[in-house]
């Protein structure tokens, strides 16, 4: 690993300042993606700006049909948080299924969403629930935020401060883990928001997390596992690698959609 200068600001403003003052600054949150990348010499930031000490960036608040999760909240905290368990149990369940206990103790929701790994779990929930990504300068709707593998609407130096989830009538997540990495070979988040059904798929698509129109249509009329039965597996845009073919992923997306509905 190359040397980097470490900052631990206590306010968003200080973090923004530290980033803009750096030659090549990067936000550091749980470090579960960034640090391994640095160890492999695939990233060499000059400065690391740790956002975990910023007031108000960690923790969960629930009010008026909204659950707001600070960007630096760990997966373990989301999985065990009483408000999340009460209002969005499917999200708690998703967080509890990320990686292993060590990863969950360190990794954060903001880091995961900013990174937008095509096989990560959180993007499915953010898109599936139609959440809002709150940054130091604006609010971005989930539908606009995810823009393909490892690509998001974030500007250079923009910091996610929180994710705001609307509470759904029903929501659930089902994942088929990659046996090696335990990221998702496919993961499906379904939500009956009250204003319609949203189905977000992670792990499976060539362009990362996306919504599945056929499943949304089928579940829109009848939010039940049976409704998925008639939906044809669709290989278009599915990823193929040594772990799963496009046909397998397309099939598994439908299986997981059923299981997510059953879990909701």
């Amino acid at each position: 690993m190359y040397d980097a200068k470490y900052h631990k600001p206590s306010s968003v403003a200080d973090a923004v300042a530290a980033l803009s003052g750096a030659e090549e600054g990067k936000v550091l949150s749980g470090g579960q993606t960034l640090i391994p990348t640095m160890k492999q010499h695939l990233a060499a930031p000059s400065d690391l700006v740790d956002v975990r000490g910023i007031d108000g960036m960690s923790g969960v608040t629930a009010a008026d049909g909204t659950v707001t999760i600070g960007a630096a909240t760990t997966h373990a905290d989301v999985a065990s948080n009483a408000d999340v368990l009460a209002h969005l149990p499917g999200l708690a369940c998703l967080a509890g299924g990320i990686g292993d206990p060590a990863v969950r103790a360190m990794g954060t929701i903001g880091g995961s969403v900013a990174n937008n790994d095509p096989a990560a779990d959180y993007p499915a929930a953010v898109l599936g629930l139609g959440a809002t990504v709150v940054t130091d300068k604006r609010e971005i709707a989930a539908d606009d935020f995810f823009q393909g593998m490892f690509t998001t609407a974030l500007d250079e130096g923009e910091i996610i401060t929180a994710i705001r989830f609307p509470v759904a009538k029903k929501a659930g997540y089902a994942k088929l883990p990659n046996p090696a990495s335990r990221y998702a070979i496919a993961g499906v988040f379904v939500a009956d928001t009250g204003a319609g059904v949203r189905v977000a798929v992670t792990g499976a698509g060539e362009d990362g997390v996306h919504r599945n129109a056929a499943l949304e249509a089928a579940l829109g009329g009848d939010f039940s596992a049976d409704a998925v039965e008639g939906v044809a597996a669709n290989e278009d845009g599915m990823m193929a690698d040594i772990h799963a073919s496009a046909a397998y992923r397309a099939h598994v997306v439908n299986v997981l959609a059923k299981r997510a509905v059953q879990a909701s």
């Binding site: 046996p179 090696a180 990495s181 990221y183 040594i242 772990h243």
Partner: peptide, 29 residues
Amino acid sequence: AMLEQVVYDETGQLITGSYMDYCMPRADD
């Protein structure tokens, strides 16, 4: 039997170069 396999592609590049792709048995397997 169920998890491990080294994969080289046809050009001889090693595809399973880390635990992200090479599956070691874990206790729950």
